[in-house]
Nucleic acid binder design. Structure first.
Length: 628
DNA sequence: GCCGTTTTCGGCCCGACTGTTTTCAGTCG
């Protein structure tokens, strides 16, 4: 595995140790910022030399040295950073899990440690029981109750939730909020709107009709002491799925609400993985129409791009906050509290325009450095759900699918597709009832017959005879070439040996990419989000070979896979390689996962030209034929 | 610790909410 994740984790831990030691908070922030930068690198961090590291925004001389130290020692088996180890000698390791408890920050945990000698969770529980915790400054009964609630949540409090679980949940709550009297508009914001593969919480923004039921007030005007929560906030906090109200003020509330797990192939965590009822945090903010665009921009983030936008505003003698874009008159009272007329604020488009920028789609709002690029080159026309006209990876009851060929066609037609590929498993995938060569030959005949029938019915859809053929551990394919040659489309995917060495995985996948009869590499790494890391091949080599051989790399749209992931899609589009967005359908509902694949594609800057699923049938068939 | 077409020093986002306080520190996003 590339060391990116390990480096980021270590830097984040250093940030927390610095906080606990009471060091300069900006020094701590610098470490977590560097961690984010490393996390979003497309390639392996260990391949970067010092000049390359220094070229990254947010990484300077000191942190670059620490990263190099970490990578160099990792080669010897035990990655270490001397300064990290020095800090670990000063700070008891047991304090770090305490810092994860919601509501507890570095100041409080440090006070626990320094004055009460609390160094781990067990000692904290003891201090709660014998009431000694109450002797800390600013520590009362309610604060202790909060800590107890946080303790019982355990790891649930910090777990990131898969996009495919969080988005339906957010949409359900948004629908309930829209039904409330006086609500004009509800939008999902945060990393969920940016389409990230996992999210920590759900952010919802509510626009209410002015002058109805407690006008939303801001800044100094509002105070939790004197103002009652907005009726929408009250309603939200009493929704049936809400298990705990974390905070509730005039215009904002945070709760923990129940996650509805799926009942499909992947349940997204069974009861065994959830000692407590699975919940996640949901934040709601109520806003007036005139601020809605500014708030949507602000709460969609990313934080990194927000900082650039605010700086850009200042450069133009403007000031940007969640209430609008205002003239910057240097007054100490915020402009929204002085009825200053905003330059923009009701729409995101208006704010981008006033800042001299094109509209940036939410999925493209991850990296700070991209803004300068969008300013000079514009934002590419990213692929959209409506562009997708074909699904090239689907299973039937012949292997492990739940649909007949006819059902598959019906689903594809209802989605407006002109083409659907039947790609059942190959013989080595015995557990998935993979087809023997004889059964595959019979299926090819059945597909040809079905196409004739569909044509006679006047149906404007084409069924492709295909296979999802296993890429075996050594890179050979699970069927002979003469059989593959008979197929309209070949999707080659790794299913077993998913923990092999990176060098082996690279060679294995390269062989498949270079195979003259292969069109698409299905879920190239085989990872499962929050479950299985999958293969870690040299992605730049795969991408270069894919471009060279006119082979498409798949973005598997299932929310448990999203494989290729966003970073690698971005590297592939940058290199001009072809990509396919496919649902790997096993069940009719799997077609609905397409939007997660499209979101991942957009995060990777994929345009319709490079996405084979958007092509006309003629263009698609010509490409498939070019490999026969 | 990072960064800089005003700066190599002096900044680093800032507003909402809570709980414990007699006016605000800590946490969070």
């Amino acid at each position: 595995m590339p060391l990116n994740e390990a480096v980021a984790e270590r830097l984040n831990e250093m940030c927390r140790l610095l906080e606990l030691l009471g060091e300069n908070q900006f020094k701590a922030i610098a470490h977590s910022r560097a961690a984010r930068v490393i996390e979003s690198l497309p390639g392996p961090v260990e391949q970067l030399d010092k000049p390359a590291l220094l070229a990254l925004d947010g990484i300077g001389d000191k942190i670059a040295d620490k990263i190099i130290e970490f990578c160099a020692s990792a080669a010897g088996g035990t990655p270490r950073i001397a300064e990290h180890e020095k800090m670990l000698k000063q700070v008891p390791a047991g304090l770090l899990p305490i810092l994860d408890i919601p509501g507890l920050g570095p100041k409080t945990v440090r006070a626990m440690w320094q004055t009460l000698g609390i160094t781990d969770i067990a000692a904290l529980k003891k201090a709660i029981d014998d009431k000694s915790l109450l002797t800390l400054p600013r520590m009362g009964e309610k604060a202790v109750e909060k800590i107890k609630a946080g303790l019982s949540l355990g790891e649930e409090a910090t777990r990131r939730i898969a996009l495919g679980l969080a988005l339906p949940m957010a949409e359900r709550i948004a629908a309930e909020l829209r039904a409330i009297d006086g609500v004009e508009r509800v939008e999902i914001a945060g990393s969920l709107r940016r389409g990230r593969e996992t999210v920590a919480d759900i952010d919802l923004l509510v626009e209410t009709a002015e002058g109805r039921g407690g006008k939303a007030r801001t800044g100094k005007q509002a105070s939790a002491k004197t103002d009652q929560p907005h009726p929408v906030i009250e309603k939200f906090c009493s929704l049936p799925d809400v298990r705990q109200v974390i905070s509730k003020g005039p215009t904002r509330a945070s709760v923990r609400a129940v996650i509805n797990l799926h009942s499909g192939r992947w349940k997204g965590g069974g009861p065994d993985e959830h000692p407590v009822e699975p919940t996640m945090q949901v934040d709601v903010r109520v806003l007036p129409k005139k601020s809605f665009g500014a708030a949507l921009l602000y709460f969609t983030g990313s934080k990194d791009q927000n900082i650039v936008l605010r700086q850009r505003a200042l450069d133009r003698n403007l000031t940007l906050n969640e209430y609008g874009l205002f003239p910057d008159d240097k007054e100490p009272t915020p402009p929204q509290d002085r009825d200053v007329r905003p330059v923009a604020g009701s729409t995101e488009e208006g704010i981008y325009k006033a800042l001299g920028l094109p509209f940036i789609p939410p999925e493209a709002r991850e990296h700070a450095a991209d803004i300068a690029h969008f300013e000079t080159s514009g934002v590419p026309r990213l692929v959209e759900l409506a562009d997708i006209k074909a699904d090239l990876h689907a299973h039937t009851t012949d292997s492990d699918g739940r649909m007949s060929m006819r059902e598959l066609v019906a689903q594809a037609k209802s989605r407006g597709f002109h083409t659907i590929a039947v790609t059942d498993h190959s013989k080595s995938s015995a557990i998935a009832n993979g087809l023997s060569p004889e059964r595959l030959r019979a299926q090819i005949k059945a597909v040809r017959a079905l196409n004739k029938q569909l044509q006679s019915e006047g149906a404007d859809i084409r069924v492709l005879a295909g296979s999802e053929v296993d890429i075996l551990a050594d890179g050979t394919l699970d069927y002979d070439d003469d059989l593959l040659q008979e197929l309209d489309i070949v999707v080659a995917s790794p299913h077993a040996a998913l923990s092999q060495e990176p060098a082996l995985a690279t060679r294995r996948l390269l062989r498949a990419i270079e195979h003259p009869l292969v069109h698409i590499i299905g879920h190239p790494t085989g990872r499962l989000i929050n479950r299985r890391a999958g293969l870690a091949p040299a992605m730049d080599e795969l991408i270069a070979a894919a471009k060279q051989n006119n082979t498409a790399l798949e973005i598997n749209a299932h929310w448990m896979r999203l494989d290729l992931r966003d970073l690698h899609v971005r590297a592939a589009t940058g290199a001009g390689a072809l990509l396919a967005i496919d649902c790997d359908d096993h069940d009719p509902s799997d077609f609905d996962n397409l939007r997660y694949g499209v979101a991942t594609a957009r995060r990777g800057m994929l345009t319709p030209e490079l996405c084979v699923n958007t092509w006309s049938r003629e263009k698609l068939l010509a490409w498939l034929k070019s490999k026969r």
